[in-house]
Design a protein around this nucleic acid. Structure first.
Length: 439
DNA sequence: ATGCCTTTGAAGGTG
DNA sequence: CACCTTCAAAGGCAT
């Protein structure tokens, strides 16, 4: 079940987003200090350095590639395929990473829906309580205002970014916290006057984060100031109709007028394959929730079904049932925002390598910085749950192709290991955050 | 065409 | 309750 706090607990119930009294002190300041020092001394720069180092070490003897400019050993595309493959296999052995000390929440502090307690600390200048849906793309035109909310965050990318000469492109300077700034920027209560200037079509590759955060579609979806009566009917049979709370009722639509302001990250809005809903493509009513994707990834062909047997049709129907994706967690949101920067800075493209860097950067983030993403993630989950009360992550189990790790598991078992073969390590790795105990 | 890799976090299932 | 498993994003690469 989704973990929306249904009003219980001592947090006042309901949406206690941004509750000021959630500001909690940490008792492990020493550890935080460690984090800080780690951040500054061996943070992001080390991330890539280690990654690169591992690449170099593992590809020692290989002719210097041209991966990261000036960084040997990162050019996967410069070696023979076999060599690259070998490197890839050993790229970052699961035991390779020596994760930084975990961020721990202070004991005796409460948590909300699994987020580290420090993540619940009030975001600067964010009014509370917050309605999760009250985000607006209007913020796109108000980045300055958003920046005012977190003025201290602007230089962060410069600190956090891979400033190493081999990686510094400077592109990340444009906006780093733009996503969060946007999300955390609340429109006027009236919601009026939210008609940003239409923008030309944006392309994913050509439109890095320049005032256009790579937000979770969930939030982007609700960024529209123009309401629609209800979210797309994704699965009437399984997913109960979303709650039509007053807060939500005004955030379910995207009008054509709002399309122009949407960044590339909301390409789902116009993508034909996503027009699965009940209506006519292009019509707001036909706009599905961003987390809804056809299982096949292709547009449905209703007439095809008539040619199939009932069983086939049923199976196919089942298979093609739109999939409600899981809401993104904090780290996913972070990755989504920062990926482009890492790519730009490091000229890396392989997500596996990028994700490793991002993982390290994530650990290098301060609590406050991480808290933003936890907060966003929490709101995303709330939105998701409000939209699809009956949805369960379990619904998507098996929709992804079974990974071959299963057979790996069979062949290499002996000990306990998860399907990825990583669990023992992860278990051995200190958890980033200890669960909070609710007082 | 499809799955793997790689990361963290969330959530559900199991013992 | 602890542990395990799966999925979420992403894109190059391998099969």
């Amino acid at each position: 079940m989704p973990q929306l706090d249904s009003g219980g607990g001592g947090s006042g119930g309901g949406d206690d987003l941004g509750a000021p009294d959630e500001l909690l002190a940490f008792q492990d300041e020493g550890e935080e200090q460690d984090d800080k020092s780690r951040d500054s001394a061996a943070g992001p720069e080390r991330d890539l350095a280690e990654l690169k180092s591992s690449l170099v070490n593992e590809s020692e003897g290989a002719a210097g590639g041209a991966g990261i400019p000036g960084v040997p050993g990162t050019g996967a595309g410069t070696r023979g395929e076999a060599e690259v493959s070998a490197r890839r296999r050993q790229l970052l052995p699961r035991g390779h990473r020596a994760p930084p000390p975990p961020l721990r929440a202070a004991p005796g502090v409460s948590s909300v829906q699994g987020a580290p307690v420090w993540a619940l600390a009030p975001t600067p200048a964010v009014p509370a309580p917050l309605t999760p849906l009250r985000f607006s793309l209007q913020a796109l035109g108000r980045e300055h205002a958003a920046q005012r909310l977190f003025p201290d965050k602007l230089p962060e990318p410069l600190e956090d970014g891979l400033k190493a000469p081999e990686c510094a492109s400077g592109m990340y300077k444009e906006t780093v916290y733009s996503a969060f700034n946007l999300l955390m920027h609340y429109p006027p209560a009236s919601g009026a006057g939210q008609h940003p200037q239409p923008q030309p079509p944006l392309h994913k590759a050509s439109q890095p984060a320049h005032g256009v955060p790579q937000l979770s579609p969930l939030y982007e979806h609700f960024s529209s100031p123009h309401p629609t009566p209800a979210p797309v009917d994704i699965s009437q049979k399984q997913v109960p109709r979303p709650l039509q709370t007053p807060d939500l009722s005004g955030f379910y639509s995207l009008t054509s007028g709002s399309m122009g302001q949407l960044p590339h990250t909301v390409s789902w809005f116009t993508h034909p394959s996503l027009m699965l809903g009940s209506g006519v493509p292009g019509h707001p009513a036909a706009i599905p929730h961003p987390t809804i994707v056809p299982a096949s990834g292709k547009e449905l062909q209703p007439y095809d079904r008539n040619l199939k047997t009932q069983a086939e049709s049923k199976a196919e129907k089942e298979a093609k049932k739109p999939t409600i994706k899981k809401p993104l967690n904090a780290f996913m949101l972070y990755m989504k925002e920062m990926r482009a920067k890492v790519i730009a800075e490091c000229t890396l493209k392989e997500s596996a390598a990028i994700n490793q860097i991002l993982g390290r950067r994530w650990h290098a983030l301060s609590r406050e910085e991480q808290a933003k993403y936890y907060e966003l993630a929490r709101k995303e989950r709330q939105l998701h749950m409000q939209l699809y009360p009956g949805w369960s992550a379990r619904d998507n189990y098996g929709k992804k192709k079974r990974r071959s790790r299963e057979k790996h598991q069979e062949s290499t078992t002996g000990g306990k290991r998860n399907a990825f073969g990583t669990y023992p390590e992860k278990a051995a790795t200190p958890a980033p955050f200890l669960p909070m105990t609710v007082l």
